[in-house]
């Protein structure tokens, strides 16, 4: 996937489950089928409203979405997604967030939130793909916003080595401040955090950049182009697929965890040897 040189370097690596599936010989074919399917499905969702009104299935999907919205989302976001800015239960207005935001928030389980809080945590998602599509279709009718991207947009297929390196630069300029140099995540004020980026699929990474969920800023396609986003995703994938050259990565948290291990294994181990050296051995009597 990353050109011949990279693959060569990585002979014999057992890559993570996700990536290994992606790298399966059938992956490209499956991806293509999936892509075509999604393209068809999405086109029908995001097509201009004139056509929507003409299309019964889409209208039906929006209606289904409206019903799901009333049950799962309206208590915070208002019956018509107008948002609630006062009271104990608050939620932002959803006009203009677009189908992409709904897809990200619901498929990662962040929405609906279990309880009001500083930050919606990712958790197992309870909605089926159809239900998410219906919700997204409904919210998309509230106002123009980013649509769910097609696989070709977010999959860094056949990315060049040069783009990977540029993706690294973009990552370190735009992302690492919050998400750490290895995508291990980091702290934000008042108990909030930037989640780890390890093991996330391409679509999720892309949607997060596109929609700026919660405290994360938006990186719109006009500014950080889809090509740039793919470069970042490609860099992250490559970074996480390459084994730690120096051995055990020790959590990838940098000097703090290294210091801890220097004390425990280094000094601790040597003190253990010191105790053996100075111990009085067993006596014959």
């Amino acid at each position: 996937m990353f050109g011949p040189h990279l693959n060569q370097d990585m002979r014999g690596i057992r890559v993570r489950l996700l990536s290994s599936r992606r790298r399966h010989p059938a992956a490209k074919a499956l991806l293509l089928v999936f892509g075509l399917f999604m393209m068809g499905a999405l086109y029908s969702v995001v097509a201009p409203p004139v056509q929507v009104s003409a299309d019964d299935t889409v209208t039906q999907q929006v209606e289904e979405g409206r019903a799901l919205f009333a049950v799962g989302c309206a208590s915070c976001h208002g019956l018509n997604g107008e948002g609630q800015t006062s009271g104990t239960i608050q939620g932002p207005p959803l006009a203009g967030v677009g189908a992409a935001a709904v897809d990200f928030q619901v498929s990662t389980g962040r929405m609906p939130m279990a309880r009001p809080g500083e930050q919606a945590a990712a958790k197992p998602n309870r909605y089926s793909d159809e239900e998410i599509a219906a919700l997204a279709a409904y919210v998309a009718t509230l106002g123009p916003g980013p649509a769910i991207p097609e696989p070709a947009e977010y999959t860094p297929a056949n990315i060049s080595a040069e783009d990977l390196a540029r993706g690294g630069e973009l990552f370190r300029t735009n992302c690492s401040a919050c998400h750490n140099f290895e995508g291990a995540g980091g702290a934000l004020p008042n108990g909030k955090y930037a989640p780890p980026l390890v093991g996330l699929d391409d679509k999720r990474l892309y949607l997060a950049m596109l929609t700026g969920p919660q405290q994360m800023p938006v990186f719109s396609d006009e500014v950080l182009t889809p090509e740039d986003k793919r470069a970042i995703i490609g860099y992250l994938n490559a970074l996480h697929e390459q084994p730690a050259a120096g051995g055990l990565a020790l959590g990838g948290l940098g000097p703090v965890s290294e210091g801890l291990w220097a004390w425990i294994v280094g000094l601790g181990g040597l003190v253990f040897f010191a105790m053996w050296i100075a111990a009085k051995g067993a006596k014959a009597k």
Binding site: E169, L170, T173, N174, P217, V218, F219, S220, E222, V223
Partner: peptide, 21 residues
């Protein structure tokens, strides 16, 4: 301009909640 890519920016390309380095 944007860091790394050095592309200039128009106000209408920036969404609410957007951050540009």
């Amino acid at each position: 301009v944007q860091d790394i890519t050095f592309t200039p920016i128009k106000p209408e390309d920036i969404e609410i909640g957007q951050l540009i380095n």
